[in-house]
Write a protein that binds this DNA or RNA. Structure first.
Lengths: 343, 343
DNA sequence: TTCTCTACTGTGAACGCTCACAGATGCGTG
DNA sequence: CACGCATCTGTGAGCGTTCACAGTAGAGAA
């Protein structure tokens, strides 16, 4: 018989081979491949059989050459990468995006742009049309990359609200403010009155919005906001530890603290432990993210879950919509309070 | 002047545009692009200037169509993915590979093959020549994917020694046995005599080789191997906790334990804590991996560092060598004992 | 009948690049 | 002087696909 398929790993079959096998023309095979419009049922079937028989797989390079699309998207990480790879949320996100794209048969290209050099190289790669769109992950938003890409006309979806220039950039984010509100409300509901907070960097939406939620609830409850109860961190464990130490010094009567990330909350726990404060007896601690770190911590962290699975799915959905011509869109997803031992 | 480059985002410049701009032919431009052999210095320079001026970037699809190469490689994860994405080592590996490839201007395609369906789709994608080679990460080695890819003639490098069929598959691994030997030797050197171990799954090289190292040192030191001191885990925290509990029941006089992963060691610490055993006073604990988990643990884990940065670099090196025609190769890298509080 | 419309099919002509080849030049050697 | 050889250059062909277009056939309307 034919010595192709699994056997002789020679030249892979082309659309020509399929056409010959099916007794139709290239054009018909191509039409079957692209949705099967204007193809008779008999031809349709013959082509499908031929595809199965020959083991044909479309050559994406040839297709891309003519369509101008690449049928792939980039997953772009700006900034020093350690921060991300340390962050368990990031992994969930990466996995979710890869999976969601795979459902559309679209490969994901992982791109790391830590240094200016890499950034340049990658921008060239992207703007040369080697990907159809970009999923952008960058914590310090206000990242120039977002604007550059937008200006270059590259479909783009950011993870988290980009702050700064009210650029028309699509994004998907959890409702940070509302999540913070839930947590602080919870801390108050269990009887705490000196509720502090360790914020994220204030050039990130997570930093700004979670702090805003904190302020709002206190105000709504008629509790004056005491600036000595506010310390800023950098989303790292060490930063959380340092912030907690400052907090204890500034406000020794602290009885609860809302920490803007679980990783920082781990540092906060360490600081409190060293200072001889018990959690949650002396001080209740609430985190944010519901990362695996929340379960590693002792006691386990009460935290705010971000719907990462939905975030990744939405990012992909919005990006694909944008690639096929729709306008940029913003999606904000609800968070969920997860109560464990620390508060 | 010319209305290209940064300005009008119309059709990107082609090799034709560059040739015209430089006053040479396509062929000469192509030669410059591919190493610059047989090109006069003056032409070389004119072409480079034209490339800068036009902002030309090679169209990889057109190139791939004719060369048959795709100039990209896949990073393939088999098995249920959670396991990997939970594992901090994996992240270091992914980051390292992406970076090492970027240095060669080769994009990395992340591929997740958790389900049989995905596996089929991805195998088709790979064997269709959409990537030039594959970096394979799969903990339970003996994975059929490795053999399938090898049989399909796809350049391949595995992370960790594939066990089972002595297949001619390239791999890069840390020296598990030697690392285990160092750790057990260390435990003995601090005076422990009832040294147990929690192994990894015994269908993984990490499981087998680390146990082998454990046995070897005990034997060399003339200490009989007591099977009650050996419990197997599954590289998960919960598995470590369960194994430690069994160990305590089987051998209450345990005074040290070598755990085949840091994550499991965390579980072991939890179990010991619950049983009222102090670490390291009552029982010394040694981990493996030097993952961030080692620093999260209390006390911080004495552990064996795997050189993940070098592993990723070597994987990429070996893969690229193989793509350009060299034979498969195995690389084994030394580990390093990291002493902290737990032992 | 004849004409129009829809459903379907086949055929060049690209897409942007590399490769093989043919040609041109300059230089050293028989 | 003729010849080989190495260096350099341009040209046509073709990689595998899609797209626009030109058809063909059959059904229904005029």
């Amino acid at each position: 018989m034919t010595m192709n398929a699994t056997g002789g790993r020679r030249r892979p079959p082309t659309i020509h081979d399929v056409a010959r096998e099916a007794g139709v023309s290239r054009g018909t095979v191509s039409r079957v491949l692209n949705g099967g419009h204007y193809v008779s049922p008999s031809a349709q079937e013959a082509v499908n059989a031929a595809i199965r028989k020959t083991g044909y797989v479309v050559n994406r390079h040839a297709r891309s050459l003519i369509t101008g699309r690449s049928d792939s998207v980039g997953f772009l990480l700006t900034e020093p990468q350690e921060r991300f790879f340390e962050d368990p949320n990031f992994n969930v996100l990466l996995r979710g995006c890869t999976g969601a794209l795979a459902a559309h048969d679209i490969p994901l290209l992982l791109m790391l742009a830590g240094t200016p050099d890499e950034r340049r190289r990658i921008m060239r790669y992207i703007t040369a049309g080697h990907v159809d769109g970009v999923l952008l992950v960058s914590s310090h938003s206000g990242d120039p990359v977002a604007d550059e890409l937008r200006d270059a006309g590259v479909p783009l979806v950011a993870c988290g609200k980009p702050i700064g220039q009210a650029s028309k950039v699509s994004y998907v984010a959890a409702d940070d403010r509302d999540g913070a509100r839930d947590m602080v409300r919870h801390l108050l509901s269990i009887g705490r009155r000196r509720v502090g907070t360790v914020t994220g960097p204030l050039d990130t939406p997570g930093g700004v919005d979670r702090l805003a939620g904190y302020r709002e609830i206190l105000t709504e409850e008629g509790i004056p906001v005491d600036e000595r109860l506010i310390a800023s961190g950098d989303y790292s464990r060490a930063g959380g530890e340092a912030a907690a130490t400052r907090l204890l010094a500034q406000a020794p009567d602290l009885d609860a603290v809302f920490v803007a990330s679980d990783l920082m909350a781990q540092g906060v726990l360490t600081a409190f432990h060293r200072a001889g404060r018990r959690v949650p007896e002396d001080i209740a601690v609430g985190g944010f993210d519901d990362s695996p770190a929340a379960l590693t911590a002792r006691p386990e962290l009460t935290t705010v879950r971000q719907p990462w699975d939905r975030i990744s799915a939405e990012m992909v959905r919005v990006l694909l919509a944008q690639i096929s011509g729709e306008d940029p869109a913003a999606v904000i997803l609800p968070t969920e309070l997860v109560i464990r031992g620390s508060a």
